[in-house]
Structures are given as C-alpha cells and as structure tokens.
Simulated assay, not measured.
Amino acid sequence: MRRMLLCGLAVVAISGQVVRGQGLEWVNAALPERAYDFGTVARGSQIRHAFPLVNRTDQEIRIVDWRTKCGCTDVKVGAKVVPPGTQTTIEATIDTSKFLGYKPSGLTVIFDKPSFVEVELNLTCFIRGDIVTSPGQLDFGTVRRSEKMPSTSLTITYAGSVAGWEVTKMKTQTAKVKAELRDLGRSAEGYSMYSLAATLQPNVENGFFKDEVTLLTNDPNMPAIPISVVANVQSAVAVTPSIINFGGVKAGQSITKTVLVRSSQPFSITRMTAEDGGLQSSESAEGAKPAHQVTLTFKAPEQAGPYHSVLTIETDMKDEPAAKLKTFATVVP
C-alpha cells in the first residue's frame, strides 16, 4: 500500500508543474496559454489578460470554481460550461495601485469535466512607481447604444528622473475607440501630467468590449505605457435566453424550443438565418411590437457527435447590429 501511495504522489508532483489531476490529455489542447507577462506597467493601472479556453474534445468542459493567488486579481469567466467545438475566455485583471516592482499573480482554475483537474494560470508584471494613472483604466461601464457614443478619461502623472519626459506618440489596438491626448503641463509638485480621453465608436460590437491604448514615451526604460479600455455594450434588441442547449438528441429526431426577442420600443424582425440547415426558425406573429416569440426546431443529422449553430436575427431598428442566438446539441446514435 505504501509503495502504491508513493507512486501516486510522484505522478501528482510531476504534473503539478502545470496541472493537478488525472486524465490530463485534453488540458494542453484546451488551454494552450497558461502564462503571460505584462512587462513594465504604470502604477495604478488595471492590466488584464484573457486566456482562451477552446473545447476540442467530444465532451463538455465545465469549470466548477477558481481561486486567485493575490487579492489584487479579479477574474471573469465567459462561460462555466463550454460545449464541444466552442470556446470562451478566462480573464484576469490585476490592480497595480498597491504594489511596486516585480509582481507575480494569477489564478487556479478547477474543472470537473471531462475530468477533475486544477490548472494554474500565471501572470507577472513589473510596476513602475514614477508613472501613475488615475483611474487605472478607461472604463465606460454599461453602455446602451445611442446616436452619441459615450466618452471617458484618465490622468497620467510622471514623477521620474528623465529630463524632458513626454509622450511622443499614441495608438489604439482597433478603430473602435478614438483616443485624444492632452498635455496638462506640470503639477504643483513639478510632475509632468497628461489627460487621456477616449470615445467609443458606433462600429463597436454588442457585449463585453476591450481594447488598449498604448502611449509611447521618450523614456528608454519604459518606452510604452499600456492603458486598458473596457465597456459592456448592451444591444437595443435582446434574445432570452441567449444560448439554447438542445441536449442529447437522437439522429433524425426533431426537438423544439422557444425564445423571446424583445426591445424597449416596437420593432419588426426582417430576417432570421441559421448557419446550418438543421435549425429552422419561425415567428409566432409578424408586425412591429416590443416582444416577438420565435420558435426553433432542430432536426438532428444522421452523424453522431457535437452540434452547434448560430441563428442571426435582423430587425428594422436603425444602426442596430443583428442579434445572435447560439445553439448547441449532442447527436447520439
């Protein structure tokens, strides 16, 4: 018995460098990235990174819990249950306002499907105390679509020793946010100060949005300052529920479910299109109204395995992107 126990502990110790548990073959494919280094960042900044989680198995992947390695780290999981052939993200945000120098952090994610396993996702950064951002990121909060998109701003203060320190250039990751930098001169203490303002653009997608503004400086020790941009853009048209799981369906069998498409003002559904012909949709009653009942009928194909399709719902609401409804099923013999 003792010999068997020692062998078991040895296996756990070896696999503990990355993950802990049994049946670990799927982990490397599902989580190809398990460590990220932010490099040098400004104190006060909210730095975030999203680890992709891709289900390449024929079973669902389920997250049951997670724990952070530091109280400065916040975690957002896109979906706890990930059906076969789909993906989500595990996003971690570090608040750098209370630390200086090298800072390791991260989290441990606990799965119970396809097998029980604990996976460590590690984050590192070096926090500069002579550059401070207030607040730590450009956060728009919850945004409802309108003709005038919202703006937000923050202040950058430099208290370092580089003579004539300045921001020489600015760039954004995408064209979905417009940024403007303004030189505020010097503070009462003689520190260089800048104001950074950002405005969301109409082409931003619905849902959780993130971008990054990079400020390039003439400091050779910190030539780039990353600034996170986040928003939760809410659609004028919502589908409830937003995800349909038909569950296990026998080959050739049909199953029907109903969803509600609604808005704060009357509208008409102009078109509904599914990625796959096995998914059919119909509206209970046409015409302009605040809520529409849509019936979905899924006929399972003859081939067994995971199934997923997206239903696109277009409306007559001006400048409103089409609503998306994700559907999943497992076709059984």
Rank of each mutant, 00 (worst) to 15 (best):
T88P: 05
T88G: 03
A179T: 00
T168I: 09
S153Q: 08
E147N: 12
V143T: 10
E120D: 11
V167T: 07
Y102T: 14
A92Y: 02
Y102F: 09
A179N: 02
W165H: 07
L184G: 04
E118G: 09
S153V: 08
P83M: 02
A179K: 08
V143C: 05
P83E: 01
T88E: 06
T86N: 08
V75H: 06
L100A: 15
Q173D: 14
T93M: 14
D183H: 04
K98V: 06
T142V: 13
L184R: 10
A163P: 11
I156F: 05
N122R: 15
G160F: 13
T152L: 04
G185N: 08
Y102V: 10
F140S: 02
T89D: 13
E91W: 01
G141L: 03
K171M: 15
D183K: 07
T124F: 15
K76W: 09
T124W: 15
E180S: 01
M170Q: 03
F126M: 08
I94Q: 12
G160D: 09
S187N: 14
Q173Y: 15
K98S: 15
K148N: 01
A163D: 10
K171I: 13
R145G: 05
S134I: 05
G141E: 06
E189N: 02
T93G: 11
S115L: 11
E180R: 06
L138G: 00
W165M: 05
L100G: 10
E118H: 03
R145C: 10
K178M: 02
E118V: 07
D74P: 13
P150A: 03
T93V: 14
Y158D: 09
M170S: 00
R128T: 13
E189Q: 05
R145K: 09
A179W: 07
V109N: 00
P83R: 02
I110F: 10
F111N: 01
F140N: 02
D183Q: 07
R186N: 12
G141Y: 11
R128M: 14
K80Y: 11
L184W: 06
F99P: 12
V143K: 12
K113D: 10
A159E: 07
S134F: 06
V81G: 05
S151K: 00
I90G: 09
T133N: 02
C125H: 11
L121M: 12
P84A: 04
N122W: 02
E147I: 13
R128Y: 15
